[in-house]
Structure formats: structure tokens, C-alpha cells
Amino acid sequence: MLHRDMTRDAEALLGISGAEPSGTTRRTALKAALGAGYAAATLPTLAQSAIRTPSDGLTVGEVMIDVNGFNMPAYRAAPAGKTGLPVVLVLSEIFGVHEYIADTARRFARAGYLAIAPELFVRQGDAQSFGELAKLMAEVIAKVPDAQVMGDLDATVQWAAANGGDTSKLGVTGFCWGGRQVWLYAAHNPAVKAGVAWYGRLVGASNDLMPRNPVDVAASLKGPVLGLYGGADTGIPLDTIDKMKKALADGGAAARASTFVVYPDAPHAFHADYRPSYRQEAAEDGWKRALDWFQRHGVA
């Protein structure tokens, strides 16, 4: 079941449907979607964000966050010279903190936030060094325990509090793999005021490393989550969103305050402006809704 979920996640990430032309295997489809040029040396080029947010007036760059003696790298962006800033954790896709994620952090910084994007699977490997998606999923992503992620995010919040952030105004957002973690962290940390999950998987098989999925923790959310999803996402069926809505309706105040926006024609990764899946209208609308959501729920 874990391998099946990983394959489904990979297909969703790349916008590959479950049905393929005769004679084409899923592995071939994945390779075709990635392209012959998808190798370690070319990944940073492919991962260049089409939207280039300038860093003038911002403090940006890599920082190291201590997690029980382990130095975890993270990208930080914030208005220069300011403190007491609301904090947004930016959780990456499976490719780690590449330029698109860094640019997203700078966009939040432009809006007045201390934005931090931690490298949440750096212990398992360098996501940007893999030339094959299947290897990346099997050798890195599948080995990342949810408990490790929760601890790393807790440490990131502590770092933010000591470095100009006001963690009484804490938000979390994430994309794909990171979108799933948004739901989990909003249930884990009582300090989370609000979350915005971009097309994160909601249901799936459980195992020792991933014992619960968002649908399992929906009722215990500490802060409300806005889910931004694509109606044409082949990896996240609409019926799973319906299951999540039901679980939220049976939960506490934060769960009941959570909501979804589904863009009917948008595929998976519609916010990822460096990929063919990008849909400008849905991405821009989702971004406005994300900023408004944070402001309305005390992350501003």
C-alpha cells in the first residue's frame, strides 16, 4: 500500500492520470513527464520560479536551526531590520527548498511576514541530487517520519521566536507533500493560528512512519485550515475531499472553521509556476485567499 500511495503521489505531482496510452507503463509515463533532461545537474534550472520576487529591502538566505543537536538548514525571508513579525512556515514539495519555494517565502516577506522554509527531509538525503523521481520517492520521501517533521517544525518555530518572529501569530502553508504536513501540524501544535494547504493528500495507507493522515486528525485541528485543491487533480480524488469535509464537520471549532476551495479545471501543483501544471488564475486567486485567511485568523 505504501508503494501504491507513493506512485499515486508521484503521478499527482506530475499531472499523470491513472490511464495511459496502450503500451505505456506508469514508469515510462513518469520518465516522460520528467523529461530526459531531469537529472541532478539540471534540476535547479527546471526549478527556477517564473515569478521572480526581488530581495531588496528583505533579509534573505540560509540559516541553520538546531534540532536537538542536529543542524537543519532552512531558507529565511523577512522585511529587513524589523522584529515582532508574524511567522509563516513554508513547507516544500518533495523537491525540497529550491528556488520556487524560496521565492514563495520572499513573497510572504514582501507581505510583512517572517517566512521560513525548512529542509524537512535533509536527514534522509538531498532531494535535489536525485535524477529519478522513483528513486527520490523510495530512498528519501518514504523514509521521512511524520514525527520527525513535527519536531523539526517545532524547532523552526522556536528559532523564529528568537530571531524576530512573533510566534503568537503563527501560520503554516505547504504544497503537495508539504500540504499534507500542514494539516498534521495544525493538529499537532496548539500555537498554530491558521494553515493553508495546497493540494496535500488527505487519505492514504498508514504505517509506522506515517501513522495518521489528515482525515484522521481533522477533528483535532488547533487552527483552521484553508484547503486549496484542483478539481482536475488526478491524484487527489474529489471524494477524498468530501471525506475530509465530513471529518472536519464532526470536529472542534477550528475543524468546523476550516474550508476548501476547489478550482474545477486546475490540476495538481497549479501554484507551481515553474511547471506546466501552473494555472495563473487559480494560483493568483489562491494566493490572495491565503493572505486573507492568515489575516482573518490572527496571522498578521
Rank of each mutant, 00 (worst) to 15 (best):
G200H: 03
D154I: 12
I51T: 15
M137V: 07
V203I: 14
A290V: 09
L91P: 00
K222M: 07
V90N: 03
S220Q: 06
A36R: 11
L89G: 14
A232G: 07
K31P: 00
K245S: 12
W183M: 00
L238A: 13
R180W: 02
A109M: 05
A247W: 05
M64A: 14
I94Y: 06
G252M: 03
P267G: 07
T83H: 04
A19P: 00
T104E: 01
A186T: 15
A253P: 14
T28R: 00
V60S: 09
A283F: 04
D239C: 00
S55A: 14
L13M: 15
G230A: 05
A32E: 13
G112H: 15
C176F: 10
D152K: 06
T240I: 02
A77N: 03
E284G: 04
Q148E: 11
W177N: 02
A300S: 15
I116G: 01
V203K: 10
P276R: 01
L30W: 09
T83D: 04
G227I: 09
M150Q: 14
K246T: 15
K143L: 12
V122L: 09
A109R: 05
S206A: 14
E284M: 07
A205K: 09
I51V: 15
D66R: 09
G171L: 02
A249M: 01
A255D: 00
K31L: 12
A283T: 10
Q158F: 02
L221N: 01
Q124L: 06
I141T: 13
A160K: 00
P73I: 10
A109N: 04
K193R: 15
T24D: 03
T45K: 09
W198H: 11
G174D: 03
T28M: 11
F95M: 08
G204T: 13
G151T: 15
E11T: 15
A232Y: 04
L226C: 10
Y199E: 00
I241Y: 07
E99L: 02
